[in-house]
């Protein structure tokens, strides 16, 4: 089996995540799709680390995880705040920019 298969898998997961971000309206699900995209990228990093024979890809993936964790914490706090004022978790309801 070719190592490149991991990269194909990564690309497919990334695409599914991108579709989810655009199509789903529940802000939490949108968030989960973003996490999926990040994980897909991480998989690619890990695979490249293996191909290149050094650990830099893994270190970058590690940093990605940390940043993703931060992002989740803040993002979910924002979702909760919005929910508290709007009673809705749909991203379409937060469309004040239009007006």
């Amino acid at each position: 089996m070719a190592v490149a298969n991991y990269l194909y898998l990564s690309a497919i997961l990334f695409t599914i995540g991108a579709i989810g971000v655009v199509v789903r309206r529940n802000s939490i699900v949108v968030f989960m799709c973003i996490e999926l995209m990040l994980n897909a990228a991480n998989l690619a990093f890990v695979t490249f680390a293996r191909i290149n024979g050094n650990l830099e890809g893994q270190v970058v993936a590690f940093f990605t995880m940390v940043v993703a964790a931060c992002e989740v914490v803040v993002g979910l706090a924002i979702i909760v705040t919005i929910y508290r004022s709007r009673r809705s978790a749909s991203v379409d309801d937060a469309s004040l920019l239009k007006r």
């Binding site: 998989l43 890990v46 293996r50 893994q58 995880m65």
Partner: peptide
């Protein structure tokens, strides 16, 4: 994905993936 990480000689990341994610 954690399993794939471990399979790709990224044991630490695999564990972190499970614990953190």
């Amino acid at each position: 994905l954690a399993i794939f990480y471990i399979a790709q000689e990224a044991l630490f990341l695999g564990i972190v993936q499970i614990v953190v994610y």
